[in-house]
Design a binder for these strands. Structure first.
Lengths: 343, 343
DNA sequence: TTCTCTACTGTGAACGCTCACAGAAGCACC
DNA sequence: GGTGCTTCTGTGAGCGTTCACAGTAGAGAA
């Protein structure tokens, strides 16, 4: 029935047109549009018919001007774009956030701000009020963008723990330290004693916490920390490969490697295979994330599962709460050890 | 100097506050904001100082309400999300579109509408006027979303030729048919005569045109078309692998395969290797796209380069022109044969 | 002087919507 | 018959901008 303005040139109908068509006032149409409370069934019906007939779509600019809301959420990624495409975690996180927002009928806008220039443009867009809140993903979590948005009063939830101690910013994260503890305990239970680690970047809480969990369990077990058994990478596959090579050179007697991400673990497996070490016979390998990278690896990776679906759901919940005026909060979710063939 | 509203609770300053602070009228502030023509240097200066002092940011909702513009562009992808992450072409297309828009200081909003539900939500968001125009990427190019947006009068440029014949919708595409011709001529020049093809989906113009180019060159060379040498896939790696296996079964005497995408070609190479065929000695393999998949393949793929940077630039140019009231138009760009190790 | 032109500035009226308020109608209760 | 309550409806104001228009001042030409 939307036979009009096929060319797209004519002005779209306004709430006024709908009101006239339905024989009611603007107020009544507005009430129907926003939930339909205190509207008689007859009026309800008439308005809906008029909307169908005119092909009316609400002008969100006009609405936002009054309400101060845009009813949309931004998913902001400040990583370089290649990382976004390389790391399967983003895929999972993105689709589960989309799903969580779908329950509230809110569209998700993806914003890739890998370059400085783009970061500026996107920040301006956000602070102009085009989205009600932001789900922020960035591994460098002392991110200036986060600070800028927070200062501008934009509701914000970060994925992963931020670096600074007392920053009043919401975040949702898996319990990195506890996950690391589980993995190292598992490796110990297999009889391994020369357990190496490829950690994440040490300027991020995720990198620091996983390493801390590793050291804690070893110390508790009476095993001295050997710095030759520790290197760090940046979560990319290539850095995992390089890290494992370094470990093999520094500590050829290692009998297990705990790698702080599945993608890095893939690289490490490649390096071990090249060095002639059999996994899991000679060396046990543990990953972190439980992304598809863990399943695609040969052998399939034993890893620590990050509950991405729950993380997304919590991020959305916290963000919406904050949009409604609640205070920032932190949520830490438990991880789970997933045993496969690499240990 | 933006010391105010750190908590984000106080109302942001309006153009009125700036005007008062600078001792001028709203009109003058507005003029400074929009290019600064017909404003005295003194007023210019005063307004800029007032903006800095108050931390004023223009309210885009109010602006958009009047101008009918939002100064942002949507990049809409109606593919399933996995495909987006798998196919390196999207990465390239996306970043070059971002770059092309950056020249106009326009932010790009990425919208992934893989599911029907999400498609509805995003379509509503777009038709409500939240973006000025849409760059649409979808291989199923008779896409109902395109039709809906066109009907709603939203400026739209599609990447790749749309399916329907006379639809008045803008698009930018590489010359698929000509690219295919180049590749098949190249294979012929190497002395190959049993040239097989893994085409794209035959319900898309890209799939059809590349196949047409293949048939045309063979026919011109006096070689009869053998249907056993032709299968089709969906551009994914897996479908390329399956396609090559089918070809090997149907026509074991093939001496070349032209695969309609690099990603599928990767799969085909895997299948050929498993069957013990050496590339390029026993079988020459040609791809299409020249994405990173072509370089990552072993051996490196000879392929047809799609000029993604030019495609993006043209998409943006055509879209902006259309936003400014110009008529839809089609742009076809030439491809280029890139010789590497697989032929 | 007077007129015209240019450079600049201020003002009211929109843009399309929501929100608060006032008012009407119907019903029940004392 | 008044009073209070609930359900529904219409109206005016206002959100923060831009835009068209009117108006001022100064320079140069007649």
């Amino acid at each position: 029935m939307t036979m009009n303005n096929a060319g797209g040139r004519r002005k779209p109908p306004t709430i006024h047109d709908v009101a006239r068509e339905a024989g009611v006032s603007r107020g009544t149409v507005s009430r129907v549009l926003n939930g339909g409370h205190y509207v008689s069934p007859a009026a309800q019906e008439a308005v809906n018919a008029a909307i169908r007939k005119t092909g009316y779509v609400v002008n969100r600019h006009a609405r936002s001007l009054i309400t101060g809301r845009s009813d949309s959420i931004g998913f902001l990624l400040t990583e370089p774009q290649e990382r976004f495409f390389e790391d399967p975690n983003f895929n999972v996180l993105l689709s589960s956030c989309t799903q969580a927002l779908a329950a509230h009928d809110i569209p998700l806008l993806l914003m890739l701000a890998g370059t400085k220039d783009e970061r500026r443009r996107i920040t301006r867009y956000i602070t102009a009020g085009h989205v009600d809140g932001v789900l922020l993903v960035s591994s460098h979590s002392g991110d200036p963008v986060a600070e800028e948005l927070r200062e501008a009063g934009v509701p914000l939830v970060q994925c992963g723990k931020p670096m600074g101690p007392g920053a009043r910013v919401s975040y949702v994260a898996a319990d990195d330290r506890d996950g690391a503890r589980d993995m190292v305990r598992h490796l110990l239970s297999l009889g391994r004693r020369r357990i190496a680690m490829v950690s994440g970047p040490l300027d991020t809480p995720g990198g620091v916490d996983r390493l801390a969990g590793y050291k804690e369990v070893l110390t508790d077990a009476g095993i001295a920390i050997d710095e030759r058994l520790i290197v760090s990478g940046d979560y990319s596959r290539a850095s995992g490969e390089a890290g494992a090579e370094r470990l093999l050179a520094q500590a050829p007697d290692l009998d297990a490697v705990f790698v702080a991400s599945d993608l890095m673990a893939q690289g490490a497996l490649a390096a071990l295979a090249r060095a002639g070490r059999r996994v899991p016979e000679d060396v046990s390998v543990g990953g972190f994330d439980d992304s598809v990278a863990a399943l695609e690896a040969t052998p399939a990776l034993t890893t620590i599962r990050q509950p991405y679906d729950r993380i997304s759901a919590e991020m959305v919940r916290v963000l919406l709460a904050q949009i409604n005026g609640e205070d920032p909060m932190a949520v830490i979710l438990p991880t789970e050890l997933v045993k496969r063939d690499s240990t």
